[in-house]
Design a protein around this nucleic acid. Structure first.
Lengths: 246, 246
DNA sequence: CCTAATTTGTACGTATGTATT
DNA sequence: AAATACATACGTACAAATTAG
């Protein structure tokens, strides 16, 4: 049974880190100023150097300070590393891309989630889910822009049969990923060497560089709607975004 | 003066971490098995418990093990996950990445802008500008994370000589890209095959896939402060972002 | 259920190396 | 060149969580 004691005492180094953190956030140590030295912290808090260093390590991990041998501990931020509600680019911009291209679904199947699908959808491996496989092309160009696999969780039987029907699946997919329902999209980019199968599907040399994008689509409640893994030929695709200050 | 010694000896705890890491990757300690206890590591490597714990801390940071009081050090992965997963939603987040890594400048030179520099900086080709070349590494890992070229426009003579002095250039750069001055960052991602020179600098196979990021840094007035081109090894780097509805 | 042994977590002390000022 | 400050590394002891019996 978990202890229900209302006060769980922090280790000393965390208490010190919290005090220092509060002091930084409160402006006591401005950005670009130096924190007290380890020795001073030892004296002030009556702690050993080991404890002082553990506390400073926490501040460093939190991104508040930067420590340099011989120089000291420099304050580099005075805001807690919380996520801000200001974001780079809107979901609308992303969907604009979908609008300028066409997605041709080649396979639609019901599968037991493998490791990839499970981690993407946040479900246990082996759980039933739906996988679509298709190719995305510019609207007036037949050269492929990407090969994409879409993973969809827990399909209700009715929706599922429509998804698995190649004639209807694209409309069901557009319905699921309807702009009105979308709350946020999580994106991840990596460079990989294309596997032979997908390379030929994209008309690129085997082993050539490709951009792998993993996207997870959430509704406004944060519920996962779908996940998609795409492979884009390196020489003909790039992704741009703008980050603004919060 | 910069040290020219070709071999920089690792601290002991890093050597131990490297050996353990290799053993995990090599299958000597499978996933879900326990690493030797701290005491056993002390005996085996003839090190103090402090050193053993620092080594284990590195493995924990690397995501290879999970340590639980009373239970031991459990191997939770036998492949290093992305060594760095950059997760950016705001300019602050992007700079956070700079905080977790170290940028070592190897060359600093004044050049006449070539086509690339000119288009990045929005200046006429041939115009004078400054180029820095360096390697970025995680703070607790010596394997390179990226090779980067930074381009800086119209340097005033005083600032310029500081930029070209390898001992000072990093501080000038951090000053120019100071968080307080940044307004927005424009980012672009492409997958490429690494050219031989940069591939060796990154310790990757020639021709392997790499993620090329081009970033342009603007102040709040929209004035271009700097541009940077980085090449990240494909298998160990990924970039993440979240888009929210406008 | 409780006890004991094991294992990591916290914390102290000390000394020396190395980068910076 | 010297002083300063962080990095590495040795030692010890006790606390807290886990596990075995």
């Amino acid at each position: 049974m978990e202890s229900l004691s209302p006060v769980s005492k922090s280790p000393r180094y965390r208490q010190v880190a919290d005090e220092l953190s509060a002091a930084i956030l409160g402006g006591r140590y401005p950005v670009n100023s130096l924190l007290p030295t380890e020795k001073e912290l030892c004296r002030h808090y009556a702690i050993s150097r080991h404890t002082a260093r553990e506390a400073l390590r926490l501040l460093e991990i939190a991104g508040l300070i930067s420590r340099r041998q011989g120089a000291g501990s420099l304050v580099i931020a005075d805001t807690p590393p919380d996520r801000y509600n200001q974001f780079a680019q809107s979901v609308e911009d992303l969907l604009q891309y979908g609008n300028a291209t066409r997605f041709h679904i080649e396979r639609a199947e019901s599968i037991a989630a493998d490791t990839l699908a499970a981690s993407l959808l946040g479900i246990a491996p082996g759980t039933a889910c739906v996988r679509l496989y298709g190719i995305r092309r510019p609207r007036h160009d037949r050269r492929p822009l990407a090969v994409t696999e879409v993973y969809l969780p827990e399909p209700e039987p009715a929706a599922r049969s429509a998804l698995l029907d190649l004639g209807q699946s694209i409309y069901r997919l557009l319905d699921i990923l309807d702009l009105a329902k979308l709350g946020s999209v999580e994106q991840n980019f990596t460079a990989v060497c294309a596997d032979p199968e997908r390379a030929t599907a994209l008309g690129m040399a085997p082993g050539a560089a490709a951009l792998r994008t993993v996207r997870r689509y959430f509704d406004r409640q944060g519920e996962l709607l779908a996940a998609a893994v795409s492979l884009h030929p390196g020489e003909s695709f790039s992704y741009s975004t703008v980050l603004r200050r919060a």
